[in-house]
Write a protein that binds this DNA or RNA. Structure first.
Lengths: 215, 215
DNA sequence: CGGCCAGGTTAACGCTCGCTAACCCGCCGT
DNA sequence: ACGGCGGGTTAGCGAGCGTTAACCTGGCCG
């Protein structure tokens, strides 16, 4: 049990490595995504980083606080990344369609990289204490709002409520990736990213009724 | 507490009403969808149908059994409904596109009607005991397989792994509906159904790279 | 050199949960 | 008339949970 752990001293994370705190967050997100927030015990999270149970409380106020930090983190990264990409695309003067492409590409990037977090993000939100949940919801709302604006600009024929619903639906589409990541036959990452991009763009394109079906 | 309950006797459900067992399943699915399987206690489920805690064990072997029955139920209804619709569309001789439309319409029907179940279906599967989980996964796999066949026939340019990924992604799209059903501004049901249908069809249509983006 | 503190340890508490036990009662068939 | 039983009740057990307490230790700073 207490085999090799004590080596290395307790210095800082040595350049590329993760701090204890980051290790914990990473493992916690993996476990929460796999078995659900309530399905994972603190002892398990501790064990996953080589320490045991209550030692986690040296780094976090509690189990809730870990989930809160994960969800607030990804929500703000999504929003900030989205704002930045949309702004950049717009600055280059290519119009709303390019901005929408940038949003889609950014979201796919997130979804394929931080798969566990994307799962948590729309699955365990209700397990947060009120204050954190409100914060996360606010960030999510802003992110959705950003998308809705761009979508409406790119597809002016689409009424607002339907644009909103379409955005949520496309999130569902893009966020489905984590679930099919099992050892199943799944194309490699660039192929998957390109496919998801086409699917999302095609969905928006035919949302307004313009077609996209039939051959 | 023991106010009005004892009226009505214990006869059968009186024509249109639900049996106790069905009441329990309905409330359990709602609660599980709202707060997660582990987040709901048996006392709560009992209270939701007007009986208390352990009385549930007169109807089910345990909490697991309720979830199992819910998930097996919806998985088989999805599969059977899908097979039937696809077969009917094909029998009418309209080809694979009509069959795909029928599958999409059927799934939307399910998603908009049994919202809680659709949520559970791709969220709480891992909480099942092994035997039930295998059964549910088998049904899901068959349902996916049915879609993949129809999609490949409707869009022959799409390679198999990508068709498979596209099907999963479109499930994510269609199943996203439950989450936006809050008191938010959401179009009425026929509008939502039509929108989802267009989104799904548009996604498949541009999956093969044929376009669907741009205006 | 010595004390502090970051970051671990194990023990234990209290609560909640799923489930069982023991009991009860009103309906229905004989 | 009455026994069985379907379907309820409350009490309570045992396990597992998140969390706290009490203690230990090795490196760094004055």
């Amino acid at each position: 049990m207490t085999s090799r752990s004590r080596a290395e001293g307790a210095s800082r994370p040595a350049a590329g490595a993760l701090s204890r705190r980051e290790q914990i967050l990473r493992e916690a997100s993996r476990l929460f995504a796999e078995r659900g927030f309530h399905g994972v015990g603190v002892d398990e999270i501790g064990a996953a980083v080589g320490i045991s149970g209550p030692a986690l409380y040296r780094h976090f106020a509690g189990k809730d606080a870990m989930l809160a930090e994960l969800l607030v983190g990804i929500s703000s990264r999504l929003r900030e990344g989205g704002e930045a990409r949309a702004a950049r695309a717009r600055a280059s003067g290519q119009g709303a369609e390019a901005a929408l492409d940038a949003l889609i590409a950014g979201h796919i990037e997130f979804a394929l990289t931080d798969r566990a977090l994307i799962t948590l993000h729309d699955r365990e939100l209700d397990r947060l204490p009120d204050a954190d949940r409100r914060r996360v919801r606010q960030l999510q709302r802003q992110y959705v709002e950003l998308w809705v604006e761009v979508v409406r600009e790119a597809h002016p024929a689409l009424p607002d409520p339907q644009a909103r619903a379409a955005v949520h639906a496309v999130f569902g589409l893009l966020n489905s990736t984590p679930r099919l990541s099992r050892p199943h036959t799944l194309p490699d990452r660039p192929t998957t990213a390109a496919l998801l991009h086409r699917l999302a763009r095609g969905a928006f394109a035919s949302a307004a009724g313009g077609g996209g079906g039939r051959g």
